[in-house]
Write a protein that binds this DNA or RNA. Structure first.
Length: 216
DNA sequence: ATATCGATTATCT
DNA sequence: GATAATCGATATG
């Protein structure tokens, strides 16, 4: 019988600024298996990163940074390891980590997490009632808009936070977990530069988005 | 299981 | 005025 190792938030160690000061493709791949931790009031939430996308600089037409620096995207041009939160489709927020040294734009979009802690709070934030089944757990943090809603991440509150610091309330750390197998695909939901293989997922993980996420 | 579509607003042209 | 790094509902096979 399989014994699932209990997730222990106390064993999660924040990633360094240097971790993010690299090419977004490198950062994206290495973020798989790491843990996003959310402290909000008394709520403690955490999820393992199972799906991310890399967004590059001026040469990447799909990246918000492609058009140059604007008030909205300035975090992408700033220091590495900061949260870039943007509002999309009139309804949702999406969370990114800024990459590359200060002055050079790049980022990684968080597309899906495997919920580890604070599942009840996340269900409440998502407006899900009743018992959490294996099926409905997927609705908590699978999808970039969903994971932000589950963790109450908004631009007003959470943009430009230093995600190497637990006191930021939103931070990323490692607990020793290593993905067995990583798959790379094209990015989701974009029209420009859609052909590049810049989406990274933990192969076979149940919390990867999309119908094929479950069979990869 | 896959396809299509409407909601809703910040941002940029 | 158009578009968007999305989601949930609905329709159809």
């Amino acid at each position: 019988m399989k014994v699932a190792r209990e997730f222990d938030l106390r064993k999660v160690v924040p990633l360094s600024v240097d971790f993010y000061a690299r090419d977004p493709r490198r950062v994206a791949r290495d973020l798989l298996g790491k843990v996003v931790v959310r402290h909000l009031g008394r709520e403690r939430m955490a999820g393992r990163i199972v799906e991310v996308e890399a967004y590059l600089g001026a040469g990447d037409a799909a990246a918000h940074a492609a058009a140059g620096l604007t008030p909205r995207n300035r975090v992408l041009f700033g220091p590495p390891g900061r949260s870039y939160v943007y509002f999309i489709y009139g309804n949702y927020y999406c969370l990114n980590a800024s990459c590359l040294p200060d002055g050079v734009a790049g980022g990684v979009l968080f597309r899906a997490l495997e919920p580890l802690a604070g599942l009840r709070a996340m269900a409440r934030n998502r407006g899900l009632a009743g018992e959490l089944t294996e099926r409905s757990k997927r609705l908590l943090t699978t999808g970039p808009g969903r994971l932000c809603e589950a963790m109450k991440i908004t631009r007003a509150r959470d943009n430009d936070r230093d995600m190497t610091l637990p006191e930021s309330g939103i931070w990323i750390g490692a607990d020793g977990y290593r993905p067995a197998k990583i798959a790379v695909t094209r990015r989701i939901g974009i029209t420009k530069a859609a052909e590049h293989p810049l989406r990274y997922v933990i192969a076979g993980n149940q919390f990867v988005s999309g119908a094929k996420g479950r069979s990869q």
